[in-house]
Simulated scan of single mutants.
Amino acid sequence: MDSLARIEAKEAEEAAAAKAAQKAQREAVQAQIAAAVETAVAEATAAQDGASGASDAGGSGGGNVASNVDWNAVPVSDMTLFYPGQASFEWVQNGKTHGGARPFTKGGDACTTCHAKELETIGNKLVAGGELEPTPIPGKRGTIDATVQAAHDDENLYVRLQWADAGHNPAPFVDGGKMDPDNQIKVAMMITGDGIEYGDQAGCWASCHADNTYMPFDPGADAISGNADVAAQLEAKDTITKYLTESRTKVEIKGRRGKAQGGWDKLKPADEVAALFDDGTYLDLLRVYADGSATNGYLLDRRVKNDGEIAAEANLAGGMWTVVFSRPLASGAPGDVPLEAGKTYTVGFAIHDDFSSARFHHVTLNTSLALDDDSAQINVAKQ
């Protein structure tokens, strides 16, 4: 016990030192951004009114989305987003491929229980190529260190993410090296709804299946078109977007006797899917693009965009990306998970950097979020 206490004390000391170093680095970057913005605004013409001068790239700038928020007074959460490769939700639950499958499925462990302190190791291993990454991108980083801040007033949630740009590393399997040439970055936040098995343990990982785009059992356009009824219900042509297991009659996990993992074509009838949606069984999905445009939607049987409110901006200044977005706390709109005081929510973040798309992103593990609760990883502070 004495040895354990010494080890825990040493780990706590190392964690405190790392946190202090991250804070110092963050403050230095913020000073760099402030200087870049000041210079850009000074050089902007009166006609431009500074609207585009604050960015090196991207941007629906101007800081209007959260102009009422004092970000200096909002708690900062340091988040490590790591590269997941082809580690699907089926892979996670399969004891042959994932040693933590039984503690996860039988013991109730969350992904962070085992992996919170080894994300850098995991990301760097997967991004280099191997069984879980058959098409590596040379030079792509294994992790992204980001900061997340969240605030609210009586009506809206406001979220700000910041992380360092890493330059361009062309994808060798894409003409021109850019999978999504129109978007240097994309940011997604997913909020876990009700009735999702393992939802609180895994967060958005519950929607990542072995038959999604660029995954090992991606069925391809011919198989999709050959199953006309399912393709029509999913509005799918070439690929299968992320989905929840609850929307399928069966999802193959083990892949025994050559069976394809996943369950893209085992779709429940439309009325059953609609009933799940009415019960709040979905992932609320908010997405922001490099030009500051944004979409609101959800994941259930497929990825859907809806008319839910969202406002956003994205800017690159001083080598640092800043993405800010807001949405109503409780809009009442279908597909929006209402955020209420006294509740803790499981959320997940994804960053597609360097013109990437589909699974070639960086993601968080299950992350807790709550309003005015400093026990949550992300404390949404009242402003």
Score class of each variant (00 low, 15 high):
residue 6 R to C: 07
residue 7 I to G: 06
residue 8 E to H: 13
residue 8 E to F: 04
residue 10 K to Y: 09
residue 16 A to V: 08
residue 16 A to M: 14
residue 18 A to G: 12
residue 22 Q to I: 05
residue 23 K to T: 13
residue 25 Q to I: 05
residue 26 R to L: 10
residue 31 A to I: 05
residue 32 Q to Y: 04
residue 33 I to C: 09
residue 46 A to G: 06
residue 46 A to T: 09
residue 47 A to D: 13
residue 47 A to H: 14
residue 59 G to R: 08
residue 59 G to W: 00
residue 61 G to V: 03
residue 64 N to D: 12
residue 68 N to L: 09
residue 70 D to V: 02
residue 84 P to L: 07
residue 85 G to W: 14
residue 90 E to F: 07
residue 93 Q to I: 00
residue 98 H to E: 13
residue 102 R to H: 06
residue 105 T to N: 07
residue 109 D to G: 01
residue 116 A to G: 07
residue 122 I to P: 07
residue 128 A to G: 08
residue 131 E to I: 04
residue 139 G to K: 10
residue 141 R to I: 09
residue 142 G to D: 07
residue 142 G to R: 04
residue 150 A to T: 08
residue 151 A to K: 03
residue 153 D to N: 15
residue 154 D to Q: 12
residue 158 Y to S: 11
residue 166 A to H: 01
residue 168 H to K: 15
residue 169 N to R: 10
residue 180 D to A: 14
residue 182 D to V: 10
residue 183 N to W: 04
residue 186 K to N: 09
residue 187 V to I: 12
residue 191 I to Q: 03
residue 194 D to S: 15
residue 196 I to Y: 12
residue 196 I to N: 08
residue 201 Q to M: 08
residue 203 G to F: 07
residue 204 C to V: 04
residue 206 A to P: 02
residue 210 A to C: 05
residue 211 D to H: 02
residue 220 G to Y: 11
residue 222 D to Q: 04
residue 223 A to C: 04
residue 225 S to W: 12
residue 226 G to S: 11
residue 227 N to I: 02
residue 228 A to N: 11
residue 236 A to H: 04
residue 241 T to Y: 14
residue 243 Y to Q: 01
residue 248 R to C: 14
residue 256 R to G: 03
residue 257 R to P: 07
residue 258 G to S: 09
residue 264 W to L: 02
residue 267 L to K: 00
residue 271 D to Q: 08
residue 274 A to T: 11
residue 275 A to S: 13
residue 278 D to R: 13
residue 279 D to L: 07
residue 281 T to P: 03
residue 288 V to W: 09
residue 292 G to Q: 10
residue 294 A to S: 15
residue 295 T to A: 01
residue 298 Y to L: 10
residue 299 L to E: 07
residue 305 K to M: 02
residue 314 A to I: 04
residue 314 A to M: 10
residue 323 V to D: 00
residue 325 F to L: 01
residue 327 R to A: 00
residue 332 G to D: 11
residue 351 I to T: 09
residue 353 D to V: 00
residue 353 D to G: 06
residue 355 F to N: 07
residue 356 S to E: 14
residue 368 S to A: 13
residue 369 L to W: 09
residue 373 D to V: 02
residue 373 D to H: 00
residue 376 A to H: 02
residue 378 I to K: 00
residue 378 I to V: 15
residue 383 Q to A: 14
residue 383 Q to C: 13
residue 383 Q to Y: 10
